[in-house]
Amino acid sequence: MTDMHEPTGTPKPSAGEEPDLSAYGLGGSGHRRHLTPEEAAEMEKKVRQVELAISLVLRIGVVVSVAVIAVGLVLMFAHHSAYLPISGHFSFHKLTAQSTPFPHSFSALGSSISHLQGRGIIVLGVLILILTPILRVAVGVISFLYEEDIPMALITLYVLAVLIGSFFLAGA
């Protein structure tokens, strides 16, 4: 009777849950707390490495997106000298009106970038920024697998699937 676990399984979370959460059975992450001090220290080290990896991914994503957006802004102002004066009659409303064209599909974006248009390059930088949280979840899947934490890896995989699915549902 020493090492018995309740045979009841995991109670289902109430809303918006993954259907097969209760099917994982025993051996979930909660048992980690009974590790020996050496094992716990080893686990702590692994978790720390994972956190550093995620932090690095984000940092690279953020720096690259800022750089790309900045290049796009410079190109936009370089191509349109009318935008540059600090005072004058040229209002920014001409650029933010509904009729102003800017790329919002991947094909339009591709041709805009190939012509080195500032707007297209800015949109590319913004898309890199949008990708950073998705990349973070993807790194999460890998890192939970690395920690041999299957329930958490499955949860993260579900979140990743919904994220990628939402892009396809949008028709991007």
Partner: peptide, 28 residues
Amino acid sequence: IGVTAAASAGVYFVRGQIDPIIAAPVAI
């Protein structure tokens, strides 16, 4: 919030709601 926003960002991009001249200063 970043993960949740990323789930709807695709829709906003396709609908043409992400205007580069507004998004660039906001993002940076």
